[in-house]
Design a binder for these strands. Structure first.
Lengths: 156, 156
DNA sequence: AGCATAATCTTGATTGATTCCAGAAAATGG
DNA sequence: CCATTTTCTGGAATCAATCAAGATTATGCT
């Protein structure tokens, strides 16, 4: 079963928006497209990508759209320590992230433990836990090879 | 073996600072004390606690001290999504946190899996992983009892 | 197709946490 | 007790993100 994963088209994005009961606007399609094209991009990168696509768009529109898409679960907002908010299109699959201490690069990881990792801490203090977000810290391949001498002291 | 855990005194904090090769100053002792007294406090709360203790202290001093203490591993900085930076005095024991979606309350959790939970993701993408930080999301006891009708839509 | 309405976008200002900077004050080692 | 180096003060600046009011636009209905 050779199913080539097709790059989503504008029509796909419109379908996603309608499927989420969201109005289809040019900024929304462009933002959704940008998040798909640039995983883990921060807001300013997304604004740049959207403007590259549509011409001038207010940053407020992009913030509004990102919030709407996040609420509708079409994109996911991640906020790694020491970084601004970033967005990705992989949703609903409970994956996690590796953040490079040196350059801030982010990669996706599927947890080794199962679909709902670590959802049972030793003592939940009476909390009703519904999600566990795991952030791995370390060095990316590029930084780990050059790290011996040039490891920058990025914030911990 | 009934070992009552004594509340650390000023002398203890001075010892900690010297042990970390940090100069002993009144702001540093006060900040260290404040972090011990108020786990998971944010910077402004710490500033308030320090000023309550010493009188006027510049916020810049507190920021500097917190950074120095964090670098020296005397305190730990946590940055829960949707919240400002918070600090705690429990360091080096690889514990994690539960954050209430509704009110933002934070509690400590020891991971159920062991001393280094989830440190082996299924595919590390070539990263050299040295730490895994887990953030559980859910509702705290207070919010979960009142959540049925009044659950605020805090940011996701 | 055309209209009314509600949602969305633009423009511009504002907040709030954090950082930068230069000079004053204080802690440590002789 | 002095010199040196670090730390603290005071004030300004930055940057992400939010707020607010009015203009535009998408959608549902006729």
């Amino acid at each position: 079963m050779v199913q080539t994963r097709r790059v989503p088209t504008t029509a796909d994005f419109e379908r996603m928006l309608r499927g989420a009961s969201l109005r289809v606007t040019r900024p929304r399609v462009a933002v959704l497209s940008a998040v798909h094209a640039h995983p883990h991009a921060d807001t300013s990168s997304i604004i740049a990508a959207v403007r590259d696509d549509l011409g001038e768009v207010s940053h407020q529109a992009v913030y509004d759209v990102l919030r709407a898409l996040t609420t509708a679960d079409l994109v996911r907002c991640i906020e790694p320590p020491g970084s601004v908010a970033r967005y990705e299109a992989r949703v609903g699959d409970n994956h996690h992230h590796i953040v490079c201490r040196s350059c801030g690069a982010i990669a996706d990881v599927d947890c080794a433990i199962g679909p709902a990792p670590c959802l049972t801490p030793s003592d939940d203090h009476g909390f009703m836990i519904d999600e566990a977000e795991v952030v791995y810290r370390g060095l990316c391949p590029t930084c780990s090879t050059t790290a011996t001498d040039s490891r920058k002291d990025s914030r911990v």
